[in-house]
Design a protein around this nucleic acid. Structure first.
Length: 213
DNA sequence: GTTGAGCGTT
């Protein structure tokens, strides 16, 4: 009785999705099933896990059958301590296919797009702009990188820091070789040398030392 | 073997 998630999504049309956050990395659907099933009829439980390691990502999805039950579960299991960790139960906002969800219910039906809303009727992208959920495995690195970024400012770099001033294209570069993507007046791509300088890779430091030598 | 803001699969 715990083949939840083993197969594809059964039917999420008449079910309410619940998101469980802050759970331990060892908590499985079997541990959440008896907990959530006690407060309502659990249709399905799914916990995203890695394909290689198989470890949970720290959150799970619980689908109930009725709204009153899901609401009760949120009010009851939200803040509950599971496996020694406090879990956070809340309504799911997005669906498996990036569908909009309201109060746990999936709303793949647009209110009005080609009826009498806009004559153009091409604003579907507004609902799918949330696909930019670029999540990082560890946020700690972000802070580390940020802290390092501040260092090079007072590190007295020999090269100009102006991002708007390219190193020196000179004649050594073939004009014909220039990528057609440089149509942007603001070149975001830095030279391989500058990139290595900003990079946190230790090889960059070694490179610097070698040049100094 | 570690971690900790978030939004999902046959």
């Amino acid at each position: 009785m715990s083949h939840f998630g083993r197969t594809g999504p059964p039917d999420i049309t008449d079910t309410y999705s619940l998101l469980i956050l802050n759970i331990t990395f060892r908590t499985t659907a079997d541990d959440l099933f008896p907990l959530f099933d006690k407060y309502g009829k659990v249709v399905d439980i799914f916990i995203p896990r890695d394909k290689k390691t198989g470890d949970s990502r720290g959150f799970a999805f619980v689908r109930y059958k009725y709204a009153d039950e899901v609401q009760k579960a949120v009010d009851r299991l939200d803040g509950r301590v599971v496996d020694g960790r406090e879990i956070a139960v809340q309504f799911a906002k997005y669906g498996p296919n990036a569908e909009r969800i309201h109060k746990g219910r999936i709303i793949e039906k647009f209110p009005d797009t080609t009826s009498s809303r806009s004559p153009r009727g091409r604003y579907h992208d507004d609902y799918y702009r949330e696909r930019d959920y670029r999540r990082s495995r560890s946020r700690s690195w972000d802070r580390y990188e940020r802290g390092r970024s501040r260092s090079y400012e007072s590190f007295s770099p020999r090269r100009s820091l102006s991002p708007y001033e390219p190193p020196s294209p000179s004649k050594g570069e073939s004009p014909g070789r220039r990528s057609p993507d440089e149509r942007s007046p603001t070149p975001r791509s830095l030279s391989p040398r500058e990139r290595a300088y900003y990079s946190r890779s230790p090889s960059a430091t070694q490179y610097s030392d070698e040049v100094s030598s």
